[in-house]
Design a binder for these strands. Structure first.
Lengths: 110, 110
DNA sequence: GCATAATATGCAAATATCCGAATAAGTTTC
DNA sequence: GAAACTTATTCGGATATTTGCATATTATGC
């Protein structure tokens, strides 16, 4: 009974999680947060992004539970919520290197 | 010199890889292929999709090197290319369960 | 309270993605 | 080689994402 309905829903959520990872800027953010929490302004400086753009990307990561925000004074510090995210990140990076090595031409577009 | 240019490019490729995973149907396909290679028509039947739609999704997975196609007679069999993809898949699934358990309300939209 | 600093959000335009329908392309059988 | 079968591609419209700008929100210091 839990079957089709909630199964599809779970794939949907899983896809949303992947979607949150599917942007170069958000991958950069995650990579930056590996070394520890960062405030928004630190990230702005280190990544060289517009504040509003960064904030929107952080919002997406937050909405999917990938990062956690903690307010400290006027700064908001973000950290990774779950180490498994970076594990998955690294696995996919390995896959990517392997695919590139095999000389398969990846479509950069689409 | 290799630095910024190719570094950004790599994040771009990584994002493309994630994007290929960021759709419920494609996650379903990957999950189905865990149990071994499947022909397109088998997948059509098992997943209940339009043939053209499935073929498009398979094309995206193929373009990113996530699956490999092998022709056998008139059928084309697809298989997963790298076990690490399913490892990453499973890690993210664990993260998702953990996030859900923590009662954070995930935005289904966006 | 008011000015300042740090983050977040709303909006609109440009771009990308998704799907079904129609059609093309490759394989087998006769 | 024509018919049947399996898979891939093209096209157009609907939907979703990304971005910068302007503006709100929240916290601090005076």
């Amino acid at each position: 009974m839990s079957s089709q309905q909630s199964k599809d829903e779970f794939y949907q959520l899983h896809a949303h999680l992947c979607k949150a990872l599917a942007h170069p800027t958000r991958l950069l953010i995650i990579d930056e947060l590996r070394d520890g929490p960062r405030s928004v302004s630190e990230l702005v400086e280190q990544l060289g992004l517009r504040q509003s753009n960064l904030s929107q990307h952080l919002g997406i990561l937050r909405a999917q539970g990938l990062v956690v925000a903690r307010r400290d004074g006027q700064a908001v510090y973000y950290r990774l919520r779950d180490a498994r995210v970076t594990q998955a990140f690294d696995l996919l990076r390995q896959v990517l290197r392997s695919v590139l090595k095999d000389g398969e031409r990846l479509a950069v577009a689409y």
